[in-house]
Design a protein around this nucleic acid. Structure first.
Length: 892
DNA sequence: AGCTTAGCGA
DNA sequence: ACGTCGCTAAGCTA
């Protein structure tokens, strides 16, 4: 049995409707008014931002129809019902005046209708248009900065809600609303009524936030249900609800949008057509918009040429038993199959498989036993190639259901990252829109109702997403090859996925008791320091508030001013130290002690919160975040556990060897980045020093200061050490002088002497930037590229930042590559050698392993060897192992 | 809610 | 303007 499914359920008619005022305001606050004004003094930042946003929307979303709704100045029917509605708002800023009119004029020139209707709000117009659009078979996109718009979300209507400013406006679907507010969009208005809306001057029930409101809604179905059962709601919040029930009913009445307005515009009027060229020219002349003018005309020129992207129709194959699943898989003749989990409530509830114009949907709950066995065999088969978007996340989801995964042939998350390592997000929908130029349908899940068969709501979007992953994989593979990143993907990043997965799954054991003791310890330090600080100034103050500290330091105590920052003067540790030297004020001592202690307590708190029921902390490694190729660690970040201070190091003692294991082993590289710099630069002096096993900084110091190595003082040594490391980050003589607290002249001379002795380093650093400017990218030893188009920017500041990034990327990136290679080989040998020991953590140049009884010697040798042999450089790699029952003890 | 400041690591 | 790459927490303004 098969049926044909249109992957893009949405018809080709797409209606984009915008809340004009709310987006104009967002634009106004996103762009500085002082930078956008005509020579006649008219401010244009809101107009500029709004039009820019609109052009981006048209380019990305490719609507066929567009309209903008505006509020009127006259009182709305809501205001008539409730005179306080939207009361207490600040007056609109002077600079905003006139800009709405200008936006309407631009809309006119673009032949986009501007709609308002007395006595209604733009929101009601949006609601009406959304309904009319849906009825006419459109897919609808509502752009609004007002959360009331969430009630409009359906399977055909999405809300684009600005996250920040006007450049980041992600689409919100039902799942996104639910993830954020714990209710479906159709109940959002009930939730808002309970919680209240400060922006509209609509107080709700005091003490009731989204969580409580959502709990009630999910318990009683909706607001009406809550009100019916109002007397059975217990606790203080129940009392509050009964007391403020009038607020709630009023709010609910007011936040209900009208869908039935009589508008004198038809959908036809909204059809997107070419702008009126002459009008735009005149208007943009007056507004002095030049880049926008070009963007606008380019966009419409491109639209003429580019027809809507074709998304292939595919056949949905019903898989009722093991045999039909096997048949589906075998029909692919060994070609890769895209596997995409459908997620609800943090669990994989279904799986979409896509294999070139044929697709399968499987619900994971209540699978037939034979079918489940067949599926498990397919997923675990390393010779059955599979394509994922974020395979590691999928592995966790499936592992939670007892399914293991092997045979990861491609991961579009990884590919996208290697192609654009600087991009901050690589979400599937975004990538599809960016690379394949179409919109992927999104999930529609009813939480907690899966057993009722509603998981079928997930099927269509999951299938379409699986198709997207499949198509994206093909597209990105071409790009990968063109950018010479295919080997990196195949040989390094993809094989690393199961290694990282295993590390995350394993986690690291912690001694919670010790963690709690530490918490108490640091808390008492915080209290002591606070009391001393308060005593020193004669009153209490929030020591964690830089703003309040500024008042104390620079007004009350009238201490010398520190470095200027946006909000006044900095109170950072370095400046406090300076102030202490200058003034010796006891408040500073106490404040610094407070800062140290509270930081450590926060770290401990974070760790405590992260301990799982298994007594271990499971971090997540992000493989596609750091532009240089490093991993990053989050939830919690285990790559920034304190180590430099004695007190901080105590935290490392809570990371312990787990039950059934013998000890922890840490192995780290010594001076990896300096060694890479020696290798990349080919500097004979540096290479010789490393080959002879000299103390590098002492050696460099003797050359720079022209003394015998034995005569290098610790001061000299620390100076060249700072400089050596600084060079890899693009340190300037100014920066060096600041860090070493010496004059700029002295710093400059130091650098000159350095480069006189190690000329190849200077040559290398210069060539890196030059090459990158020419090619557009830097490259690591393993061929990992970082693209730096801003090296050619006309903006000096951006160019300088890009230059420093260019200096650093090959060094930091090569080190990252090296560690990854070592991890892969270690993982492989651990597996093939049948060892029970396992890798737990990676901290950039350090690996932490948990050693099974009797394996210490073998593993220590294995890890040390593989880390040392990860690359064949012109200098030896020095690797240092350490053993102990805790992470602290294992350090050497 | 997003920005800013601060501070931890490599 | 002035050293790279990260993550998290808190306060504050909106």
């Amino acid at each position: 049995m098969s049926e044909t499914t249109k992957p893009t359920e949405a018809s080709d008619k797409r209606l984009l409707i915008i809340d004009g005022h709310s987006m104009a305001f967002r634009a106004f606050y996103a762009l500085p008014a002082e930078n956008f004004a005509t020579s006649t003094g008219q401010h244009t930042n809101a107009v500029h931002g709004f039009v820019s946003m609109l052009l981006t929307m048209i380019r990305q979303q490719k609507p066929t129809h567009v309209a903008v709704a505006f509020d009127l100045d006259t009182p709305t029917f809501r205001k008539q019902e409730y005179s306080e509605y939207k009361g207490g708002r600040n007056k609109t800023p002077e600079e905003f005046h006139g800009q709405i009119d200008l936006i309407k004029q631009v809309m006119g020139a673009m032949n986009i209708p501007s709609i308002s209707l007395d006595p209604f709000e733009a929101d009601d117009i949006l609601a009406t248009l959304a309904t009319r659009g849906e009825d006419a078979g459109f897919s609808v996109l509502v752009v609004s900065g007002d959360r009331d718009a969430f009630q409009l979300i359906t399977d055909r209507t999405l809300v684009l809600y600005p996250k920040k400013g006007i450049s980041d406006i992600p689409p919100m679907d039902a799942d996104a609303v639910e993830a954020k507010y714990f209710v479906r969009p159709e109940r959002y208005s009930d939730l808002a009524a309970l919680v209240g809306e400060t922006a509209d001057n609509l107080p709700g029930v005091p003490g009731v936030g989204p969580k409580t409101a959502a709990k009630w809604i999910n318990q009683y179905g909706d607001l009406a249900g809550i009100l019916e059962n109002i007397d059975s709601i217990k606790g203080k919040v129940g009392d509050a609800l009964r007391e403020h029930v009038d607020n709630v009913t009023r709010n609910r009445k007011l936040n209900q949008l009208r869908h039935d307005l009589e508008l004198d515009v038809t959908l036809e009027d909204m059809e997107l057509e070419a702008p009126n060229r002459e009008e735009i020219e005149n208007l943009f002349d007056a507004l002095e918009f030049n880049t926008l003018r070009k963007r606008l005309f380019d966009l419409f020129a491109a639209q003429d040429e580019e027809s809507a992207p074709e998304v292939a129709e595919f056949t949905r194959v019903e898989v009722a038993d093991a045999a039909s699943l096997r048949a589906f898989i075998e029909a692919g003749q060994g070609a890769a199959i895209a596997v995409h989990p459908a997620v609800s409530g943090g669990e994989a509830v279904g799986l979409a498989l896509y294999r070139g114009l044929e697709a399968v949907w499987m619900e994971l709950a209540g699978l037939d036993e034979a079918l489940e066995t067949e599926l498990a065999a397919f997923l675990a088969d390393s010779h059955a190639p599979k394509i994922f978007h974020d395979a590691k996340a999928a592995m966790h989801l499936l592992a939670d259901r007892g399914l293991s995964v092997a045979g990861i042939a491609d991961d579009t998350l990884i590919s996208a990252y290697l192609i654009q390592p600087d991009r901050r997000s690589h979400e599937l929908a975004e990538l599809v829109s960016y690379h394949l130029k179409y919109q992927v349908p999104v999930h529609q899940v009813k939480k907690g109702e899966l057993d009722l068969g509603l998981a079928s709501d997930l099927a269509d979007p999951a299938l379409a997403q699986a198709q997207a992953v499949f198509d994206l994989s093909a597209y990105l593979d071409t790009q990968l090859a063109a950018k010479h990143a295919d080997a990196l993907a195949r040989d390094m990043e993809l094989p690393l996925i199961p290694v990282l997965f295993a590390m995350e799954r394993a986690g690291i054991a912690v001694n919670t008791e010790r963690l709690n003791e530490l918490r108490a310890h640091f808390t008492s330090q915080v209290e002591t320091a606070s009391n001393e600080a308060f005593a020193a100034i004669g009153h209490e103050v929030n020591l964690s508030s830089p703003k309040q500290l500024q008042v104390v330091l620079f007004e009350e105590l009238d201490l010398p001013k520190t470095k200027k920052i946006k909000t006044g003067y900095t109170t950072d540790a370095e400046s406090l130290q300076d102030l202490l030297v200058k003034t010796g004020h006891p408040f500073l001592v106490a404040l610094m002690a407070y800062r140290d202690a509270i930081k450590l307590r926060q770290t401990v708190d974070g760790l405590l919160k992260a301990v799982h029921p298994d007594g271990r902390i499971h971090t997540t490694y992000a493989q596609t975040v750091a532009a240089t190729g490093r991993l990053s660690s989050l939830n919690p970040n285990l790559q920034n556990i304190p180590v430099r201070s004695e007190e901080g190091r105590r935290i490392r003692d809570v990371f312990v060897v787990g039950e059934g294991y013998e000890t922890l082993l840490t192995v780290d590289y010594s001076q990896i980045e300096m060694r890479i710099m020696a290798h990349l630069s080919g500097d004979e002096g540096l290479i010789q020093a490393y080959q002879d096993g000299e103390d590098l900084h002492r050696f460099v110091g003797s050359r720079v200061f022209n003394v015998e190595p034995s005569e290098v003082t610790s001061e000299m040594r620390s100076k060249v050490k700072a400089m050596s490391y600084g060079l890899a980050y693009g340190l300037s003589s100014f920066g060096l002088s600041k860090q070493l607290k010496i004059g700029v002249d002295e710093a400059r001379k130091l650098m000159k002497d350095y480069f006189d002795r190690f000329g190849a380093v200077r040559t290398y650093l210069r060539s890196v930037v030059e090459q990158a400017r020419k090619d557009g990218y830097t490259e690591t030893i393993f061929g990992r590229r970082r693209y730096l188009p801003e090296l050619n920017s006309s903006d000096r500041r951006l160019r300088d930042i890009a230059e420093r990034a260019a200096l650093n990327a090959p060094i930091q990136g090569s080190a990252a590559d090296l560690v990854k290679v070592a991890m892969l080989r270690i993982a492989e040998e651990l597996a093939s050698g049948g060892y029970a020991s396992r890798m737990l953590l990676q901290v950039h140049d350090e690996l932490v392993l948990e050693i099974a009884p009797g394996e210490l010697e073998a593993i220590s040798e294995l890890v040390t060897r593989e880390m040392g042999a990860a690359a064949d450089l012109l200098v030896p790699l020095d690797v240092q192992p350490g053993v102990g029952a805790t992470w602290h003890e294992a350090a050497h």
